[in-house]
Design a protein around this nucleic acid. Structure first.
Lengths: 225, 225
DNA sequence: AAGTTGAGTGCACAGTCGTACACTGACTAG
DNA sequence: CTAGTCAGTGTACGACTGTGCACTCAACTT
């Protein structure tokens, strides 16, 4: 629970905690905002976004319901902010994966590995995105769709640097990228379904993910319009 | 008016309609049950299952909220029933697709075509399934997962009759089947996002779907453990 | 030093929610 | 013909929802 989430209660004896940074006005506001996001993500661990109430999130962040509106005009807006937060994580992952690339084999292994690491490191974010991706109309799903398209485009750009793919039409390149992204997302969903301790299941899932990617890429050298 | 079930509006002038079959006790019950399922599916057209209330569904079916419990002990149970209903649709589709099979090319074309037809014929069912598939824990998502596994297994069985695949270990066969099912589901999601009139977009999506399948299957002849 | 701003509070409201309870009356089994 | 079953009704409850309103009081501006 939000360990006093900034939001001073009447008696906040919160003595130490943190180097007690500068408590400027906007700084405090931003902290509460973050507390709201954190609380939402926390509650989202085993529920869908649609079933999340403004009051719950506010309570989780340690503020009164009406104060919620000082930060977001609606739950939907908070949801979009959550998507943006997740995006930063994803971009970081892509950047990391971009550095090391040799042939196909090495790239597949490395990609799956970094994906695994990031999923385990930010389970809540990934769970949120995979859950809400197809959750129906609404700003959240739309924001996710946009983000996924960007992600896929980035991947297509990266793929274009490989030898047999250099000459592909961009359309086919995007198709391949979508295929890979979709397969990866499936892997993410599988990983998130594994119960916490089971490292053997993790390993099995990763092997399956590598195989899946290899299957997809096997056809690449034989492709023509 | 209550007994009228089948979604009687205030002014239900339902005079004729149907050959007015035998109105036995259990027959009436089953009809109301179906009315509940229909009402739920109808409301689900643009909302998530989690945001669906028992009262809404009951009202949609033309009964009073407490009467809901004569048919389902909870909304979750209704959700599972909805999954089962959808399953019948899917099985019908598989059976249809199984009949005609030549080489890869023909099969791909035929599969995508039948998928398209069935999606358009049962949009609400498909929307429901794609939405709730990853909607989090809960009986509905679990039921969908089970059904998807069965579906994938059936496909694997069918695939095993093709020449290069005959010798594959079942594990790899399941991997391939999963890949195909996932790709198809992606296509379903795309189809459902197309706004009603746009047949050109339909066509584009189908072409992309065929390409995607071809890409996956291209690697098949070159696969080894 | 005096005044303004705005994040957070507390109350109050009208709805909606799931569900408990006692009921009615058309079908059905004896 | 009679007694029983049970799908559907109507009321009533306590809990929870989003949000409007008037407020406080620390941080900022002038």
């Amino acid at each position: 629970m939000g360990h006093a989430a900034i939001a001073s209660t009447l008696l906040d004896v919160s003595a130490a905690e943190e180097p007690a940074g500068p408590v400027s006005r906007q700084e405090r506001k931003q902290r509460t905002r973050q507390a709201l996001l954190d609380a939402a993500l926390d509650l989202l661990a085993d529920r869908s976004f649609a079933s999340l109430s403004l009051r719950e999130v506010a309570k989780g962040a340690g503020i009164v319901p009406t104060a919620f509106y000082r930060h977001f005009s609606s739950m939907e807006e908070l949801g979009v902010a959550l998507v943006e937060e997740t995006t930063r994580t994803l971009r970081g992952m892509l950047r990391g994966a971009r550095t090391e690339q040799r042939g196909y084999g090495g790239m597949i292994r490395a990609s799956v590995h970094t994906l695994h690491r990031h999923v385990r490191e930010h389970e809540d974010h990934f769970r949120f995105v995979t859950r809400e991706r197809y959750a129906g109309p609404g700003a959240v799903s739309r924001a996710i769709a946009v983000e996924m398209r960007m992600f896929s485009s980035d991947l297509a750009l990266d793929l274009a640097r490989f030898d047999p793919l250099r000459t592909w039409p961009t359309e086919d390149l995007h198709l391949l990228a979508d295929l890979i992204v979709t397969a990866m997302l499936g892997t993410v969903a599988e990983l998130l379904d594994i119960r916490p301790g089971d490292t053997a299941a993790d390993e099995r899932t990763l092997v399956a993910a590598e195989k899946r990617l290899r299957m997809i890429l096997l056809g690449v050298p034989h492709w023509q319009p």
